[in-house]
């Protein structure tokens, strides 16, 4: 039942995201971690990840800047991520947001139609 209500939103080499129409959650699989967000929490999490100063991580030679701790305690997401992982996570979150917005836009333009993403 749950499986039928899942639609894939985006995928990259590090993870996948789905939308669940039954629970109204966005599922994020990043590496081995699976996290479920309400849509507004997903947007807040994306903003948090986008605020990570990756330029500092690139140019600051101190060991402190090799990793960035990305936390969302409410959703059991707590990882020390490398620069590469941050970039991959951002890509995953941005791609997902694009799909969510595109779906919303299609609903607005086309009205009450059933959209099925294959």
């Amino acid at each position: 039942m749950l499986h039928n209500s899942l639609s894939e939103l985006y995928q990259n080499s590090k993870g996948t995201t789905w939308q669940c129409d039954l629970t109204h959650r966005i599922f994020l699989k990043f590496g081995e971690t699976l996290t479920a967000f309400k849509v507004q929490d997903f947007f807040a999490f994306r903003r948090k990840v986008n605020r990570v100063n990756i330029h500092e991580m690139i140019f600051n030679l101190s060991d402190d800047y090799d990793y960035e701790l990305v936390e969302d305690p409410r959703h059991n997401f707590s990882h020390k991520l490398t620069l590469c992982e941050i970039v991959q996570l951002r890509d995953l979150l941005d791609g997902t947001k694009f799909s969510i917005d595109m779906n919303s836009m299609l609903h607005e333009v086309l009205g009450e139609v059933e959209l099925v993403i294959q």
């Binding site: 639609s7 129409d21 109204h24 309400k38 849509v39 969510i100 919303s104 607005e108 959209l115 993403i117």
Partner: peptide
């Protein structure tokens, strides 16, 4: 696929 954004907020 449901429009979760619109369901949540206007």
């Amino acid at each position: 696929m449901k429009d979760l954004v619109r369901l949540r907020t206007s």
